[in-house]
Design a protein around this nucleic acid. Structure first.
Lengths: 202, 202
DNA sequence: GAGGTAATCAACACCGTGTTGATTTTCTAG
DNA sequence: CTAGAAAATCAACACGGTGTTGATTACCTC
């Protein structure tokens, strides 16, 4: 009596989603047709419409699944952060989990985050990342305000996502822990210092 | 004897391009049809095909025009940089010109850089920005190498583009000079210090 | 004002879409 | 293992956007 327990729908949905990611990377999201998709997946075209209203419905559902996964991890991170974690122990508590999750879903993430993907997904990811960053800064005060706070957020969020994109597009070298360190060090010390290009506060 | 001197083609091409930007923002790039476009622009559909092969051809041409404009400015920047400019005079030599140029073409740039735009254009912009940054770092040596240099580039480039996106999407408050200062200070001192959230090297 | 070229208009075959009804295959529950 | 249910297949449909064509009209350059 589970939501979708039938093996058949599980199989076909998975086939559709996997093929979808492949095709997005191959010919670009907007050049992917339902006909393409179902032929490649070796599925009757009518079957597609049994599960999705159209291509964009499929996209939405696939994206939502990933984003919910990330939200879940972010929630765990919050809980741990507030209680028993006080900086400079390891790199981050659930941050490693976050990168591991991305790694697991690299096929789809890579496709929609790539140059032929969906810019709307980038936007959604940024919103998620921004939420996390804002929580970190909640309470902290700015000594001086040379520019609107939005720009700090935009800067950090974009930099974060850009580094993740680079990581995914280059075959996921670097372990999840390394990734967490790379990003947080650049954020904290500044990119030039963290990368060894500039001495600390020169 | 100029390339396309006829007023008629200039007018129609402009109409097409302007309407294109509007429609991208309104319904998203991939939901824009040639039929939509020509109806909205009050142009015969056949006329469209007199100038462009298809929607993607129009997109390519429009993007290339913008990118070439930026390349032009980047070239000027190089020339000035190498000769009579030695840091901490003003914010940047041709940087202001760069932001002014973006402002002039804000309609199209905003559309293709937005959540319903073309992720391929983002990629192209990043490549351009990366070139500029790499030139700045040419010759400089890294004291330590905690991670591959690609990540520094990815970080800076993405942060840069993200801030530009935020600027454009929020109605171009902040003058071009301010923008140049905001970005370079975050890059140089690190985002936290530059925004007043962290003391210099604490 | 004459010649040339761009824009319009109507019509065309083509292809992907989304939906339908009938049929076959496959799974789950008992 | 079987019976009933549900999913997948298949064929067919009208619809809408595509890209192209040939003929006609409007407009610009020289």
């Amino acid at each position: 009596m589970g939501d979708t327990e039938d093996r058949r729908v599980l199989r076909t949905k998975k086939r559709i989603r996997d093929t979808f990611a492949e095709l997005i990377e191959e010919k670009g999201l907007d050049r992917v047709t339902v006909k393409d998709l179902t032929e490649q997946a070796d599925i009757n075209r009518g079957t597609f419409y049994l599960h999705f209203h159209d291509k964009y419905d499929l996209l939405e559902q696939s994206e939502a699944e990933i984003l919910n996964g990330i939200k879940q991890i972010a929630k765990e991170l919050d809980d741990v952060d507030m209680n028993n974690w006080k900086k400079e122990n390891g790199p981050h508590p659930a941050a490693e989990k976050y990168f591991t999750y991305l790694k697991e879903h690299a096929l789809f993430v890579r496709a929609v985050l790539g140059p032929k993907g969906d810019p709307g997904f980038q936007r959604k990811m940024k919103t998620l990342i921004a939420d996390g960053i804002k929580k970190k800064f909640a309470g902290k005060e700015r000594k001086s305000q040379p520019f609107p706070a939005d720009y700090l957020i935009a800067y950090l969020v974009s930099a974060h996502l850009g580094v993740v994109q680079h990581w995914i597009e280059n075959g996921l070298q670097e372990s999840p822990e390394e990734m967490a360190k790379i990003i947080s060090s650049m954020n904290y010390d500044g990119p030039l210092v963290a990368s060894g290009l500039k001495k600390d506060s020169s």
